[in-house]
Design a protein around this nucleic acid. Structure first.
Lengths: 225, 225
DNA sequence: CCATTATTCTACGGAATTATGGAATATCAA
DNA sequence: TTGATATTCCATAATTCCGTAGAATAATGG
């Protein structure tokens, strides 16, 4: 029947609204950043390195698909994920790419090798380590992302300020640095820098969205410990 | 740093391979059908009503993205989902569309109203009903989909054969008809037909992929009870 | 009210995707 | 080997999507 076809077309078209919205690398990057917390167009532009107008246009598309919401703050506008399900979608897509594409692992491994950073901890290894050893957890993301959610007890020391504030870090404890997630390079570079300065330091690959998804506690607010 | 940018671009490009593959209504329809079990190009063509070459091309793209796998059987080729995660992706996209778009609900409700089929049961309601009442569960999908997975104890009576085999159904018990899922029209039409012939009948909206995702038991093989 | 800041709107050329149909390939049955 | 069946390959035109930049809008501070 023809009405059946029209119905199915309409339904799959609606589902495709979601998938089309995430079918572009830049929009995936924006979602990834928004998983860390709300942000303005400008800050997303700066974090992603894409042209301002592109950021705005892609955010527009995410908004049209209802994946993100806008709210004005003065002349600026704060974009935020509609809800945690949006972040889950991003994480699932990322997981499938990891699972299905050997390229994904190859790219990552090559990059980590270049930076002598193959040694990473995951969340379960970290928790074991916290119990046995007196490590200090270091959050190297920008302060507003730390405020939006961080590992309880982690110290905030944004990457940009790292070299100026090395004195704040203990030399007698192992430092565990994390940033936005497994493909964020901030913690990677932080580890490089800290190693050069003689700190004992490892990278934690997971990030806040992963802990939230696992039901682990996430602290909010505050600027540092 | 430039190497960082190249790394991020490569990573997001890999993730986008997944999302681009599902960013088209026809491919979503194919995935939806493949969630019911393996199928040939021809059977998918017939079930979806799209041109044969289109079916093949879209399956090609799903294969390139590793979402589906092919295996020859004689001159034909059997396509199947790579694993359950692919089906989960489809279900999540569908769930987000339901959650975010009022259109999705409006379209569905209008269609159900047209067919006087607003009365549906969900899985939990069904289980309660099975305990209290002696209902008969009717699977109206094609036999090969029934064989690939069905509600334990459900009777297979494909929609195409329904009018010829009405005698097989009991008139003293309520019939609960299901098909591929909430947006499949087979059970809907089956309910219409059965009502016309004086059966007591309701539609079950969920389908096998939903039960699998909920961890409910799913029986395989066999052609009927 | 004017300048500034932050962002969106609009338009357009170019790139990527899609639909379509003819030709080609591969398997099977006789 | 031939014909039938099932599917893919290829080429082309139509469509959609993307990046870019100038103009427009909207809020804020003087």
């Amino acid at each position: 029947m023809n009405a059946d076809r029209a119905f199915k077309d309409a339904i799959y078209e609606q589902i495709a609204r979601v998938s089309r919205a995430v079918a572009h690398p830049r929009r995936l990057e924006l979602l990834d950043l928004l998983c860390q917390g709300p942000a303005t167009v400008e800050s997303l532009t700066q974090k992603s390195g894409m042209p301002l107008r592109s950021t705005s246009q892609h955010l527009q598309q995410l908004k049209d698909a209802h994946l993100v919401q806008v709210e004005p703050r003065g002349a600026a506008r704060i974009y935020r994920l509609t809800d945690a399900a949006t972040c889950d979608l991003f994480r699932q897509l990322r997981g499938l790419a990891e699972r299905y594409y050997a390229d994904m692992q190859a790219i990552t491994e090559a990059f980590l090798r270049e930076h002598d950073a193959l040694e990473t901890v995951d969340t379960t290894a970290l928790q074991a380590r916290i119990d046995h050893e007196n490590v200090v957890l270091l959050d190297v993301r920008p302060v507003e992302e730390y405020a939006a959610g961080h590992w309880p007890g982690a110290v905030s020391l944004p990457f940009d300020a790292l070299t100026n504030r090395l004195a704040e870090l203990p030399r007698d404890r192992t430092v565990v640095a994390y940033c936005r997630g497994p493909y964020c390079v901030l913690a990677l570079h932080a580890v490089e820098i800290l190693k050069e300065h003689g700190f004992r330091v490892v990278r934690l690959a997971d990030g806040v969205p992963d802990w939230r998804a696992q039901g682990l506690p996430v602290a909010e607010g505050g600027n540092s410990t």
